[in-house]
Design a protein around this nucleic acid. Structure first.
Length: 428
RNA sequence: GGAGGAGUGGCCGAGUGGUUGAAGGCAGCGGUCUUGAAAACCGCCGAGCGCAAGCUCCGGGGGUUCGAAUCCCUCCUCCUCCGCCA
C-alpha cells in the first residue's frame, strides 16, 4: 500500500484519487485520536491491575477494586470495538489508493501519450500481404479456436502440433536464457489465496478480473483463504517473501518462473476477440526482483533489458514505450511496455510489461529487509516484468516469420528447443 | 478421508490465570583482552502504532475473567500412523 507520507505524490494520477486520499485522511485522523483515548484508558487499567495483583484476594479492598475495574473494562471493550471499525475502514480505504508515479513518469491521458523509449530492429518487409496469425494458424492446422470454444468456451484455444511444440520450446528457451543471466528458476502453484493477491495489489480492487474457485466451505471459513486462479506469476513469486524479513546482504534477489495465467477479462468484451492476443488462459515467463530502495531503478532498467533480450535473440522487431501517468497500472510507480510488431495487424502489441512497484507491494505483503545487522527492518522494493508472454510470442513469430507460401520459418535460436525444426508447413 | 500430536522473538526452547514482552541457549552487534584471530568475560539485541507518555502483538478470529501466552470455541498450518492417489 502507499506510504502515507506520499499521499501528495499520488495526486498526479488525477481522476478520483484526490477524493480517496481526502476520505482516508479524515478517517485516519479519527483513528489516531481514538487510539490515543483508548491507550489512556488501557494504561489506567494496566496500573490498576498491577496494584490488584498484590492485594489479598479475600480482602474488601480487592472486591471493591474489582467492581470498579469492571466498568472501566467495559468502556475499554467498547472503545476497542469502535477503534477496530475505524482501523478496518482506514485500511480498506488505503488498499484502494493506487501507487504514486515516479518523478520520471511522463504526464499523459492514455496510451496515446506514452513516449517511445526506443525501437529495436526494423519492420520486416513482405512481397505479399502479411496474414494475421489466426489465418496462418488455422491454415497450418496448429491453432484450433473452434475446439477451444467447444471444450471450454470463448477465449480458450487448443494448440496442436507445431504450435504446442513451439510453446513448450519457448518456455524452456526463455527460462534457460534468464537463468544464464542470474535469475533463479521457480515453479510455483497456479492457485493463490486472497491474501496473496491483496499483497501484490490485484485485490481488493480487481476481483472481477479473476477466476475464483468455488469450494464448499464451513461458515467460519477465513475469506483470506479464498482461492483464485493466479492472473500472473508476479503474485506467487513476490509472495515467496510475504511476512518475511530478508537479510540485506542477499539483495537483490532475482527469480524467473513459468506459469499458466488466468484472467476473466471482464470489461474486455468485443476487444481482440480473434486470435490468441486476449485469452482467459495463457502462458507466461515472469521475472521478479526484490531490491533495496536505492538500487530499484537500476534494477528496473536491467530487468527491462533482460526481457528485451528474449525478443532480440528471437529476432523479433519491437519498440519500448514508457507508460504515462494516465496509462500507468494501479500498483506501479513506473512501467515500460515492450510492444512487438505484428505485421498481420499492422500494429505494435504489448508483449511484456516491466514495472517498479517501489515499496507499494512490500508494504502490503510485509516484505522487509534489514539494511545491516541490528538495523530496523525496512520495506524492500519489488520489480517485475514479463520475460515474456508465451502466446503473444508465438503470435509474433507466426506473423513476422511468415512466408509467401503460408509456411513459417522457426527463429534459429529456437530450433534446438523444437527438435531442430526449421520451418512450419501445413499438415498434410 | 480416519486417528493422534504440535504451533512462543532471526533460530532452538522454557513457561497452565497476576512486574512474562516473555527464562535459557545459539546467531548477530558493541566492548575488554590479544601483534591479529580464536577462546573467555561484560553489555546490547523482536515488531507495529504514537511527537511523546504510552499502547498493542506468544499461528488467525471469537469467548470467559478485574486480569490470558496460560482456560473455552473455531479456523489455518505443520508432523506421525492408516487409507487413497499422479
Amino acid at each position: 500500500m502507499l506510504d502515507p507520507a506520499r499521499m501528495d505524490d499520488v495526486l498526479r494520477r488525477g481522476g478520483d484519487v484526490a477524493s480517496l486520499v481526502a476520505a482516508w485522511k479524515s478517517v485516519d485522523e479519527r483513528r489516531k485520536s481514538g487510539q490515543r483515548d483508548l491507550d489512556t484508558l488501557r494504561a489506567q487499567r494496566n496500573a490498576a491491575n498491577e496494584r490488584m495483583s498484590k492485594l489479598d484476594k479475600k480482602s474488601t479492598e480487592f472486591t471493591t477494586a474489582r467492581d470498579e475495574l469492571k466498568s472501566l473494562s467495559t468502556r475499554i471493550k467498547e472503545g476497542e470495538a469502535e477503534l477496530a471499525k475505524l482501523e478496518t475502514t482506514a485500511q480498506d480505504q488505503l488498499l484502494e489508493i493506487p501507487n504514486a508515479p515516479h518523478a520520471s513518469v511522463p504526464e499523459g491521458k492514455d496510451e496515446h501519450d506514452n513516449p517511445v523509449l526506443h525501437t529495436w530492429g526494423t519492420k520486416p518487409t513482405y512481397t505479399f500481404t502479411p496474414k494475421a496469425h489466426w489465418e496462418l494458424g488455422e491454415s497450418l492446422g496448429i491453432l484450433d479456436f473452434e475446439a477451444g470454444t467447444r471444450i471450454t468456451g470463448g477465449r480458450f484455444t487448443v494448440l496442436r502440433g507445431a504450435a504446442s511444440k513451439l510453446t513448450r520450446g519457448l518456455i524452456s528457451f526463455m527460462l534457460d536464457l534468464h537463468t544464464q543471466h542470474g535469475y533463479e528458476e521457480i515453479w510455483p502453484p497456479a492457485i493463490v489465496k486472497r491474501a496473496s493477491l491483496r499483497g501484490t495489489g490485484q485485490l481488493p480492487k480487481f476481483e472481477q478480473d479473476l477466476f475464483k474457485l468455488e469450494i464448499p466451505r464451513g461458515p467460519d471459513h477465513d475469506p483470506d483463504n479464498d482461492l483464485f486462479l493466479s492472473p500472473t506469476a508476479e503474485v506467487q513469486v513476490t509472495n515467496l517473501f510475504n511476512d518475511q524479513i530478508v537479510d540485506g546482504d542477499n539483495l537483490p534477489i532475482r527469480y524467473c518462473a513459468y506459469t499458466p495465467c488466468f484472467r476473466a477479462e471482464a470489461g474486455a468484451a468485443g476487444k481482440d476477440t480473434r486470435g490468441l492476443i486476449r485469452q482467459h488462459q495463457f502462458d507466461k515467463v515472469e521475472l521478479v526482483k526484490l531490491t533495496t530502495p536505492d538500487a530499484s531503478y537500476g534494477e528496473l532498467e536491467a530487468l527491462r533489458q533482460d526481457a528485451e533480450r528474449v525478443l532480440q535473440t528471437l529476432g523479433l522487431h519491437y519498440r519500448v514505450v514508457t507508460l504515462c501517468t494516465g496509462d500507468l497500472g494501479f500498483h506501479s510507480a513506473k512501467t515500460y511496455d515492450l510492444e512487438v510488431w505484428l505485421p498481420g495487424q499492422d500494429a505494435y502489441r504489448e508483449i511484456s510489461s516491466c514495472s517498479n512497484f517501489e515499496d507499494y507491494q512490500a508494504r502490503r505483503a510485509k516484505i522487509r529487509y534489514r539494511p545491516n545487522a541490528g538495523d530496523k527492518p525496512r520495506a524492500v522494493h519489488t520489480i517485475n516484468g514479463s520475460g515474456i508472454a508465451i502466446g503473444r510470442t508465438l503470435v509474433a513469430i507466426l506473423e513476422q516469420y511468415q512466408q509467401a507460401d503460408g509456411s513459417v520459418v522457426v527463429p534459429s535460436a529456437l530450433r534446438p528447443y523444437v527438435g531442430g525444426v526449421e520451418r512450419i508447413v501445413a499438415r498434410s
